[in-house]
Design a protein around this nucleic acid. Structure first.
Lengths: 210, 210, 210, 210
DNA sequence: AATGAATGAGAGTTCATTCAT
DNA sequence: CATGAATGAACTCTCATTCAT
């Protein structure tokens, strides 16, 4: 099946190529600042400094506001994350095996795209709109654990797993991986592969049929 | 054994009763604001409004700065949390049993002291000093997972558990519980007991001897 | 030789005409406030009130901070001072004569541009950055006595002066003139011409060949 | 003639010994802070920290306000300065000789009591009351140059000096010495004796009979 | 498609001082 | 003689956003 080029994709959203490029540039800078300095410090001023833009006006011009900027960044990061993981998890075969591949892929994403991981969890945790309401809500939750839930659900139907609540298990897996992301941020020397192996075994046991 | 009265405890830190009371009042208001509106919105102005104080000067008078206020609040919340959990986990008996009790107690804390839970995770995740460095670091990590690590370590030595990395398992448990806290914040209708039961089983299996 | 227009000069520094005009406006107001009320009382609030601006935000927008504002003001005043003096001191002729002209010019600057003089000495004496370190240091010292030092140095080489340490003599002259500035501030009725005549004679004798 | 003990002196002003001691302690701390950090940064908070007092209330209790504290500190420093200089200048003998001794003594004061010198000039230059009016005014001026003026006046009457305006000459001497104080603050390595020798010669020539 | 210019609101912090005992 | 407790005002600086071209 034919794949859209970035330009075609952008045009589909009503964006000119220039606009799309600028948005990408700003989103990338936002990702870096959020990852390196934390969500709270990711002000327009710091983002334009990182992107090498002339004024914060550039952001306001391309995004309706801070909430939209963060939503767009979050979406872009989630897309990148999903593509990364999907590439590494075979769509065929045993679901129990798939879960192992998923956890490995998640940890690989942490290791190879650390900044993106960091920014993703930071924004998911902190982002609120002007009134203090959390962005995303149920939508955001699905963005982060939906894939795992569906995977577990299928596995349970296929009988390769034991008895457990799919939602809770998916949440636990997601949180465990995010926790590893925090650990790597605090102590950069740690080896991600250790976590991959341990978490794989942990959740293999937790989900195993009796 | 004789227990210190609050006043005696305060005096031990060089605080007068009045001072200790004010600090408590401010810490409680900070807890509420952080829990209800999030860390970012917990400005001095909102805290004094909640506490019914006359001006933000009152906070500056009793705490050296925002970082100290947040550290003090975090410490108070961690103390309360630890006491709550310790009261509900028998110090004798099977370690595997203890782990179940611990998870139940953690979820009970979420349910019965939701604001404190919320504030605790918010501050632990967000708090940074003026330069953007995360408060606590390794110390903070130990504050949150240390108890679990020690519990798991003893159980492994006693042979009641299977083979796993204690640090990773403790992290996964802590994160799973924090994730439940997030879920309850997003959808207040959820029943904590479901999570308690599911997580208890999940980690019982994950830690079980083969 | 062609002289840059102010706009061209501003453009050379990367400033638009509007920006340059605003900076000048703010610098002028700063000069007035510092001269009339002293360095300590020269807050952003008083400066915007004097300049007729809408808010202190205007200053923050055009200057990186208070230190930069003061540095810019000091530089502008020093430039004006140097131009004023240079216009009144013939570059040819006897160095001993030049020294007399310099002292006369300095006193004339005091008399004719009293506020600028006052602001210049105030800022030079008080200005510190956020950490309490004095602005300028050696650079500032050169800004204030460098011209005199060079003048005395040349005169000594030409043999029109007696024996003395150039640095000390330059410092004494500079300080004597600044002292006159203080006197005029305390008692506005005093006649600058008296000081000009007296100081001219004083330093003529002090520097004269035996 | 009998000399008052400090206690008797204090009692003469209506102060108990305890009060006098506290005032001295506070004045000394003020001197240190002003000398080390500058007048602007000499807040009550920094002074009590330096003096090891419990709260700023202690200052307010012993002094009517900041203006009185600074006046008292200035007076104490001026007294110490005058005593120091008087001890080193013979009251008999040639006035021209006396002037040389005075300058030497002034520089010695700079060198041996640097903090006191620094604080003295800082307060003399900066101190203003709440309305921005300079403290002291004419009184302060006399405090600083009065001794020199009287010395020069007598010398002129005795015919040992040439023709000059006493007030201007006194001002020039005072300012030259204060300028040396500034230099020593900026570059601590400088040798005060050089300045003593140079200034002695400078003003010997400037005041000499033709 | 981009930019220059400006802005009101709010942030945390520090200031000297005063009211109680 | 001393202290604890509290306070209103002012400070500089940063925030996201908007009005003009």
């Amino acid at each position: 099946m034919p794949v859209n080029t970035p330009d075609e994709f952008a045009a589909g959203l009503g964006l000119t190529p220039t606009e799309a490029a600028r948005r990408t540039q700003i989103i990338d800078a936002t990702t870096e600042v959020v990852a390196d300095e934390g969500y709270d410090r990711a002000s327009f001023a710091r983002i334009v400094a990182r992107a090498g833009l002339s004024s914060t006006r550039m952001i306001s011009y391309h995004f309706a506001g801070k909430a939209e900027l963060m939503t767009a960044t979050l979406t872009a990061l989630a897309d990148e994350h999903d593509r990364f993981v999907a590439e590494r998890v075979p769509s065929t075969g045993d679901r129990a095996e798939s879960l192992r591949w998923s956890i490995e892929a998640e940890i690989a994403f942490l290791a190879e795209r650390f900044r993106q991981s960091r920014a993703l969890t930071e924004i998911a945790r902190h982002a609120r709109d002007g009134d203090g309401a959390r962005l995303g809500g149920a939508l955001l939750h699905d963005l982060r654990v939906g894939r795992l839930e569906r995977q577990l659900h299928q596995g349970r139907q296929e009988g390769v797993f034991g008895t457990f609540d799919v939602k809770v298990m998916a949440l636990a897996i997601r949180q465990a991986i995010d926790g590893v992301c925090d650990r790597l941020a605090d102590e950069p020397g740690l080896d991600p592969r250790t976590y991959a192996a341990e978490l794989t075994r942990l959740f293999a046991r937790a989900t195993s049929a009796p």
